[in-house]
Amino acid sequence: MSVDAQTVEKLAELARIAISEETVEEVSSRLGDVLQLVDKLQAVHTEGVAPMAHPLDAVQVLRADEVTEPNRREEFLALAPQSEQGLYLVPKVID
Rank of each mutant, 00 (worst) to 15 (best):
M1F: 09
M1K: 08
M1P: 10
M1C: 08
S2W: 06
S2Y: 09
V3H: 06
V3N: 08
D4L: 02
D4R: 01
A5E: 07
A5M: 00
A5V: 01
Q6D: 11
T7S: 12
T7I: 07
V8A: 03
K10M: 00
L11A: 13
A12P: 02
A12I: 01
A12L: 01
A12S: 09
E13V: 02
A15C: 01
A15E: 06
A15P: 01
R16Q: 07
I17F: 03
I17V: 13
S20I: 03
S20D: 15
S20V: 06
E21M: 06
E22V: 13
T23C: 02
V24A: 05
E25I: 00
E25V: 01
E25M: 01
E26Y: 08
R30D: 12
L31W: 05
L31K: 06
G32K: 05
G32L: 04
G32V: 07
D33F: 08
V34G: 11
V34A: 15
L35M: 13
L35D: 13
L35F: 12
Q36V: 09
L37N: 11
V38T: 10
K40C: 03
K40S: 09
K40P: 00
Q42K: 15
Q42I: 10
V44M: 10
H45V: 13
T46E: 13
T46Y: 08
T46D: 13
E47N: 09
G48A: 04
V49T: 11
A50G: 08
M52L: 09
M52K: 14
A53R: 11
A53P: 03
H54R: 07
D57R: 00
D57K: 02
D57A: 09
D57M: 00
A58W: 01
V59I: 01
V59A: 10
Q60Y: 05
V61N: 03
L62E: 12
R63W: 06
R63T: 12
A64T: 10
V67Y: 04
T68R: 15
E69H: 10
N71D: 15
R72C: 00
R72G: 00
R72S: 08
R73C: 12
R73A: 15
E74G: 05
E74F: 00
E74A: 09
E75G: 02
E75I: 04
E75V: 06
F76C: 03
L77C: 05
L77K: 06
L77P: 05
L77S: 06
L77A: 05
A78C: 01
A78E: 14
A78M: 03
L79T: 12
L79E: 14
A80C: 14
A80I: 02
A80P: 13
A80S: 14
S83N: 15
E84T: 10
E84Y: 10
Q85A: 11
G86C: 04
G86V: 07
Y88M: 13
Y88F: 14
Y88N: 12
L89W: 02
L89Q: 11
V90A: 12
P91Q: 06
P91C: 02
P91L: 02
K92I: 08
K92L: 11
V93S: 13
V93A: 11
